[in-house]
Design a protein around this nucleic acid. Sequence first.
DNA 1: AGTGGTTCAATGGTCCAACCAATTTCTGCA
DNA 2: TGCAGAAATTGGTTGGACCATTGAACCACT
Lengths: 243, 243
Amino acid sequence: MTDFLPPIQTMARDDAVLKALVGFVRQEALGPGEKLPTERILAERLKVSRNTVREALTRWEGLGLVERRQGSGTYLKAAVSPDMLHMPLTLAGGNDFAGLMRTLEIRRALEAEAAALCAIRAGKAEIAEIERKLGIMEDAFRTRAGMSSEEDWEFHQAVYRASGNPLFEQIISAMHELFHRFWEHPLGVRDFGHASFPYHRTIFDRIAAHDPEGARAEALKLIATVEDDLKRGAANLKLSDRR
Amino acid sequence: MTDFLPPIQTMARDDAVLKALVGFVRQEALGPGEKLPTERILAERLKVSRNTVREALTRWEGLGLVERRQGSGTYLKAAVSPDMLHMPLTLAGGNDFAGLMRTLEIRRALEAEAAALCAIRAGKAEIAEIERKLGIMEDAFRTRAGMSSEEDWEFHQAVYRASGNPLFEQIISAMHELFHRFWEHPLGVRDFGHASFPYHRTIFDRIAAHDPEGARAEALKLIATVEDDLKRGAANLKLSDRR
DNA sequence: AGTGGTTCAATGGTCCAACCAATTTCTGCA
DNA sequence: TGCAGAAATTGGTTGGACCATTGAACCACT
């Protein structure tokens, strides 16, 4: 008796609201930063209660798709499309040094793969863009005599983009935002990230040579130096200000 | 001169509700599956409106921390802790074949890294557990003359767990749930995953030998066979039923 | 005992009509 | 013209009401 009866489903009101909202955003061609209708107008137009609209928007806000500013309005924070898929991750106990090390292991995995894919797929334009970012970073390194997280981050982002797979940038960007205070912070280590500097160019060289395994190896070396710096930092700092 | 005017403590009401709820869950030692107080009781106890309670719970529901069943109650779906960090990812346009290929690239990155870490960190107990899962999978393969997604998945999960980093399992589990219908589906290819079978044991061998780079290499080979199967499937199927 | 139907209380889902608080816009005076 | 204060706009919160679903208790009939 395995006749699978379809698990009957009546679409929830708030899901319907979001669906309608997706249609509206597409029809109006709204992009990130733009303001969408007020809750009251949405409620009236969609013939649902303002409460229901709010539940729907709360969902989107939780997913980072939208930002609500009291007294001002609700603004799009990212592009929306009908076939979006949501993958909320909650990391238990990721607020300390051990948590940072764990995310760094994820980053190592993705960084290596992205570099390898990039070496395979990057065209002339992408390679030129990466080289440009590399130049900016190296200039900043020389003038300021040290690593600059901003320019460093831009370089890596360029690599992710050239990997041809937007998921890399999305995942690592989320982690980057999450651990901003750690990621950016020297963590008590002087010349934090200094050791990683030369590997940026070696990674670029392997990418430009379309050598995926070489690029992967260099990326692994880079992350290894960051891990070392981090471990030195952990020794220096008790990390009691974990907020 | 107002030296130290308060650092403004007006935490959002719903965040406060969630904070209180975290405290409650910990004090009562509630685990996944258990039921938490009704919205009305929470509203009364916390001295906030039921609507506010609902907004807070909507957030948690969106994050997959909680499940609401009308007429029954609200149930915990995962462990909660005070220092949780949330990383919601929304993947645009990931609902088709190309999207599946992209997630597979992520999986390749994480799978390889997890296998390598596992080879470094797995103790006797973890290795025994992986071997047990491997045995179950191989039995299922023989009796049913083909890959079994269920047992296959259990094997990989055992590897993720033994990696010592829960993030691997979390991320890949989320992707697994998301693409359930694709992941599980033969996609029109007969003997889907057949080619990947032998690599499960070679991965295990490298892990048991504490050979991280060997394990990484075998994991990469495994994913490569899956990608090949997928490409064959794409040729067979027009994938017009993308929902 | 067991099967099926009914009742009823509990619970999440939706709605309404206010009011509060932050923001933006407008207005009128200097 | 410049700018402080009023007014309108908008998200945030409240309290109360009713609906829809669930599950347990109860009951009648076999």
